[in-house]
């Protein structure tokens, strides 16, 4: 799906936990996520902390979309 969206000319960031799979599939902008059942959250954190974590991950996604890339890039921070 990532590739077809990109092919349509829309920049797309793939946020997922198993980064090697995303690389194999062919995503160009990749943000590593937390865990498979909760990529953008963490049930072990208090609710407020979890929201902050999610805001940070989404911010990483936005930064990835704002960055020019010429090949597959993992935005890891």
């Amino acid at each position: 799906m990532v590739k077809e969206i990109e092919r349509a000319g829309i920049p797309v960031v793939h946020i997922c936990t198993v980064v090697p799979i995303s690389l194999t599939v062919g995503a160009n902008r990749i943000v590593p996520a937390v865990a498979i059942p909760y990529p953008l959250g963490d049930p072990n954190l208090p609710a407020a902390e979890e929201k902050k974590l999610r805001a940070r991950l989404v911010e990483n996604c936005l930064k990835a979309l704002e960055t020019e890339v010429s090949s597959q890039t993992v935005f890891d921070n």
């Binding site: 077809e4 969206i5 829309i10 946020i15 996520a33």
Partner: peptide, 25 residues
């Protein structure tokens, strides 16, 4: 998966979407 995205990517484009965040589990 390819066929689904092919279809909705065009809708997204027509709806003036600038960028997509795709989440996977």
């Amino acid at each position: 998966s390819r066929a689904y995205a092919l279809e909705f990517a065009h809708e997204l484009k027509n709806d003036g979407v600038t960028a997509v965040i795709l989440t996977s589990t």
